[in-house]
């Protein structure tokens, strides 16, 4: 798969079919990868596909000018389709290199399972439905449902629908919704007041680094409301109240665009369970409007479209 990707990427650049290639290269730390954004055909040799290709590369599309060949897992392809719906990128400027994705490994989960830091692990390999971790010379095996990211366990589209070149056999979704929905389910067991207090607690440690927003392909505003000064909707210092308002409005803004790629939660340096917000919004949109983000490039964006009769029940 990797070999084919490198050949295709190199050919695309050589033949002038694209100006840029966006993919993954090996990272500088164990079990990491890093986005590769290049115009140099020789860089194609660095491209990799492995269980650690975490980033959502669609995020870079809005800032790159020209034609782009982009490596896309299912979630990325949905973000790309969503950007096409919003006229942020043009389909004809893209060559989508589809990766049928078996799910990405969450290192934090592995750390919790083996009780060791990622630095202390010798190797992590995946074989079908099992992942084995080599640590202190011993091998420990885990079913994938224990080690994949929550959002991967809820994945509805492992293989992109929208693509130009496919790398490998398509994969069918195999969701583990019970596991992936655990954190939201336990929040829903609380009383409303407890839930609110829990969010106050979580958002209290936000440092406003805005990584959640900046890593999100759906957050493409030129200027974020949170940085407006006239009027100043929220204060720039990290009061939990304003942190929470930032997250609420961010979620409302990306409703119908968020594809549950889970990047916001993964990048949060202070461990705020942001997917428990984004996934709930994803489900609300699905339930109220039968809308799934990034599935159909010809569909109208959620907030542009409407039906004559819908979501009426709470109107007086």
């Amino acid at each position: 798969m990797e070999q084919k990707l490198r050949q295709e990427a190199k050919a695309l650049l050589e033949q002038g079919k694209v100006d840029w290639i966006i993919g993954f290269a090996p990272g500088s730390l164990k079990f990491t990868t890093t986005p590769l954004i290049t115009q140099d055909k020789d860089d194609a040799e660095q491209l990799v596909i492995n269980p650690f290709i975490t980033n959502n590369l669609a995020n870079f599309l809005t800032e790159i000018k020209g034609r782009v060949g982009i490596v896309a897992k299912g979630c990325e392809s949905r973000s790309i389709v969503s950007l096409i719906q919003d006229n942020k990128v043009a389909r004809e400027n893209l060559v989508i290199l589809a990766v049928p994705c078996p799910g990405i490994i969450d290192l934090a989960k592995i750390e919790r399972l083996v009780g060791k830091d990622r630095d202390e692990l010798d190797d992590i390999t995946r074989d079908g439905d099992r992942v084995s971790v080599k640590v202190d010379g011993k091998k420990k095996e885990f079913p994938i449902a224990q080690v994949l990211f929550d959002h991967c366990l809820a994945c509805e589209l492992p293989t992109p629908q929208e693509y130009d070149i496919i790398l490998g056999e398509p994969r069918l979704p195999a969701p583990e919704l019970k596991v992936s929905g655990q954190s939201i389910a336990s929040l829903k067991e609380m009383t409303p007041a407890e839930r609110w207090a829990s969010w106050e607690n979580e958002l209290s440690r936000c440092i406003r680094c805005y990584a959640c927003r900046n890593v999100c392909p759906a957050c493409f505003c030129q200027r974020c409301f949170v940085e407006e000064t006239e009027p100043q909707w929220t204060l720039p210092m990290p009061h939990w109240q304003d942190n929470l308002i930032f997250q609420i409005i961010r979620n409302i803004h990306v409703a119908g665009r968020c594809t549950d790629c889970g990047e916001c939660e993964r990048v949060c340096p202070v461990n705020i369970p942001l997917r428990s917000l984004t996934r709930e919004m994803y489900d609300i949109v699905g339930e109220l409007f039968q809308f799934k983000s990034g599935m159909d490039k010809d569909a109208l964006p959620l907030m542009v479209h409407y039906e004559q009769e819908e979501a009426e029940d709470f109107f007086r």
Binding site: T34, N59, I207, C209, A211, N214, P236
Partner: peptide, 25 residues
């Protein structure tokens, strides 16, 4: 700079970075 997403992690959480902003509530 191409892959940088312009977030504040590397600076806000850097032990030697000291930039601050001033605002009134």
């Amino acid at each position: 700079a191409a892959k940088c997403i312009s977030c504040g992690i590397c600076t806000l959480l850097c032990p030697t970075c000291y930039c601050f902003d001033i605002n009134d509530e």
